[in-house]
Nucleic acid binder design. Sequence first.
DNA 1: GTCATGGGCAACCTCCAGGTTGCATGTTAG
DNA 2: CTAACATGCAACCTGGAGGTTGCCCATGAC
Lengths: 114, 114
Amino acid sequence: MSRAEAISPARLKDAAPLFAALGDATRLGLLVSLCASGPLSVARLSVRFTVSRQALAKHLDVLAEAGLVRSSRQGRERIWELEPRRLKDAHAYLERISLHWDDALSRLKTFVEG
Amino acid sequence: MSRAEAISPARLKDAAPLFAALGDATRLGLLVSLCASGPLSVARLSVRFTVSRQALAKHLDVLAEAGLVRSSRQGRERIWELEPRRLKDAHAYLERISLHWDDALSRLKTFVEG
DNA sequence: GTCATGGGCAACCTCCAGGTTGCATGTTAG
DNA sequence: CTAACATGCAACCTGGAGGTTGCCCATGAC
């Protein structure tokens, strides 16, 4: 019996930009930094990276577009913080595909053995 | 206490191409197709997509490069199948970041409440 | 043999991601 | 007020991703 729900094309179109946002070493580094050190400004972040501040700002925009990060103004600074919900979303997607795969495997096993 | 292990830059450089490979709707579609229908040839796959056979072949190469898919010759056909290990890798990676986040949250909570 | 089918290869095109520099704007410190 | 700092904005450059077409090669069918 199949426990995994179908993966609709709509979900695919939602998932792709999410993974695309995760598919860059600098952006993953930003996520990890925000994870480890909590909310930070671009200036604070930029001392940890080799690329320019503007490049980081663009990356943060991409992450925000994907819903992985959120920003708020505090005085003259803009503070960025992680948005863990979308991270869980990505996680759930992979889980769903894995489930499908395990299902397919067990079906195959049943077919072969039975 | 912190249960999450550190996320090394080396792991970042490993994870980025993996997510990048997942960050395309067509490629996700390929994975789902291979998941649902088992190993298939490019010709078989291409009837389900609107892009050309060559485009799909390139996507499959990208997926193979990321270790998400594997191919073998069978007669005049090349059969592609899923490689679930790397999928689990990506899964584990997100889990690691989430763990870090949860750790950071609980540390913050302890700090605020304690 | 002959033909259709599956696949690799290569050239080519277009667009945008990722990066840079330079300058303008707003805000806090003294 | 003025200087220093954090950011926003815009123009610009370059490489590579994603797509196409056209052709050639191998293999299985007849």
